[in-house]
Nucleic acid binder design. Structure first.
Length: 490
RNA sequence: GCCCUCAUCGUCUAGGGGUCCAGGACACCAGGUUUUCAUCCUGGCGGCAGGGGUUCGAAUCCCCUUGAGGGUACCA
């Protein structure tokens, strides 16, 4: 234990996307690298939009990616509860403390009134802000509002002194905000829930968080939070603001996107390998000095350094993810890929629930051939369809024309004979038959291969013929060749 | 508008004054291997946003402009 404590605090208001997960991953990496602890906290103070369903999705996807946490929702720990909605007593206590000390006050202004204030500030070329009207509200007016049963909010009283609030960011260096741009922000909503900027400080402080790694979209919130840390006398953690991940339109990723391509679940369902997402996401905003890209979990942990994370935003490029996933699919142990492909094959109706040892061995041949052509596993069934379905011609007329060609019957007949004579049925042996036919038969090479391909697969291109025959088996091969011949009336 | 951040090939990035007429990866193009497609191998195309400085010397340091992104919520 290094004493370093990090956290990943998602709000369950949408499906977890690439950007959220990258933040989780970098927190996880830095925690593991430093033998620190990672806390999972659920920030559900937005009652209207938070759901348990989204929370479950977050937990599920993190588990899929292998991002285990040491403490938090679903894991327990001594700093709980870890769901903000279970911690309202705590926030209340601190709000009262600030109220008593005069560092916060009730505000009864209506939304319309606040809009006016903002417009007024904007017209003067200033940042739109609340003007502090309720800072000194006479008791009579307060009573009046209470009679009207207006529900107040609590605002933090930003000290009047003009000073620079400096964030010493692990990634960006010193970032300065002048306190004059801050208005008296709300720390408690009228629905009796704390706001993010208030709750996050109390939780991070009480949970002993030493490093806050989060997206750059939080950078402008940080000065407000620093003020709260100071007002409450808490130690300020070290901050690191990660560059944002942008979508193809170079805009921030949304939790309610019109494109499924940003959600982690989408990639899991399509058959991307978790280790690929892990590897790929680690390279979004971080890289090794020697340009190594394909790395194991352990390698990434040992080489990762939060200080090496770059400052500029990165566009999420599915093309490169596809390349990496395809590469892993081709290079990972075949049995593992077969296991992972089986659900997709079942879904396509190609295989049944129970798979015999024999069937499995056959499946292995199919997947071995199909995996050279896919980017992700859900594409396996379409690539392997010809081995499961009745033969279907891409273009039947053209196929018949092909079978009508000179010497085709000779080739097919010879092929059938030679296959029948084969003692050891395997791809190499089948290849030898083709090689012999090329030498011995007085026909063009194309006539040996192409009509056979069309007859066996229905297509003009596809896997190597010796493998096709090996997978189809002698009987099915013979059947398809005969059927081609009869189509051509021979 | 105001505040903050960022700025190297289409995309992800290496580069932290000379060894860079800028290196790698994806994508793309060409060639090779292969009976075809795919895989695989080789090669090619393609970039330091612009302008001022500083310096003997800037992709690298400073300033300005421009551009991009984030924030500006009783969302987080």
């Amino acid at each position: 234990m290094s004493g370093m404590r990090l956290r990943f605090p998602p709000s369950p208001t949408g499906r977890i996307h690439i950007g959220n997960m990258r933040t989780a991953l970098f927190n996880w990496l830095w925690a593991r690298k430093n033998e620190g602890e990672l806390v999972l906290r659920i920030e559900d103070t937005d009652l209207g939009r938070s759901t348990r369903e989204f929370e479950d999705i977050i937990l599920k996807e993190m588990k899929w990616l292998g991002l285990d946490v040491d403490e938090g929702v679903g894991h327990g720990g001594e700093f709980g509860p870890y769901r903000q909605s279970d911690r309202i007593d705590i926030y209340q206590k601190y709000a009262e403390k600030l109220l008593e000390e005069g560092k916060a006050y009730y505000c009864y202004c209506s939304p319309d009134e606040i809009d006016e204030m903002r417009e007024e500030a904007a017209s003067k070329g200033e940042m739109p802000r609340y003007n502090g009207r309720c800072r000194t509200l006479p008791a009579e007016e307060t009573d009046e509002y209470k009679k009207q049963s207006r529900k107040p909010v609590i605002r933090y009283r930003v000290p009047d002194e003009d000073r620079d609030i400096i964030i010493d960011d692990s990634i960006r260096g010193k970032v300065t905000f002048n306190s004059s741009v801050l208005d008296d922000f709300i720390i408690y909503k009228s629905d009796d829930m704390p706001t993010y900027n208030f709750a996050v400080v109390i939780d991070d402080a009480l949970m002993g968080i030493t490093e806050v790694i989060r997206g750059e979209d939080h950078l402008s919130n940080t000065p407000k939070q620093i003020l709260i840390y100071e007002a409450l006398g808490f130690d300020i953690p070290r901050f690191a603001h990660l560059p944002l991940i942008l979508d193809e339109n170079k805009a921030k990723l949304k939790k309610r996107s019109d494109s499924d391509a940003v959600y982690i679940g989408e990639y899991r369902e399509k058959g991307y390998l978790p280790e690929v997402l892990f590897n790929f996401l680690s390279l979004l905003g971080w890289s090794t000095k020697d340009d190594q890209e394909i790395m194991s979990r352990e390698e990434i942990i040992s080489r990762f350094d939060i200080a090496d994370v770059n400052k500029s935003a990165a566009v999420f490029d599915v093309e490169k993810l596809n390349w990496m996933n395809g590469k892993y699919i081709r290079e990972t142990d075949l049995d593992k890929i077969v296991e992972l492909s089986i659900p997709y094959l079942k879904k396509a109706g190609y295989i049944s629930e129970q798979i015999s040892k024999e069937k499995y061995d056959w499946l292995k041949r199919v997947v071995e051939v199909a995996r050279t052509k896919v980017d992700y596993l859900s594409q396996i069934p379409e690539e392997a369809g010809l081995f499961f379905e009745e033969l279907e011609f891409e273009d039947k007329d053209k196929a018949i024309e092909e079978f009508l060609g000179e010497d085709v019957e000779l080739v097919f007949t010879t092929l059938k004979e030679k296959l029948a004579e084969l003692e050891d049925f395997n791809p190499d042996a089948i290849n030898k038959i083709f090689n012999k036919m090329r030498k011995k038969l007085p026909v063009k090479a194309r006539t040996i291969y192409h009509p056979s391909r069309v007859a066996l697969t229905g297509m003009n291109s596809g896997p190597e013929l010796n493998h096709v025959i090996y997978i189809l088996g002698i009987e099915e091969t013979k059947r398809r060749l005969d059927s081609a011949l009869s189509l051509a009336n021979r």
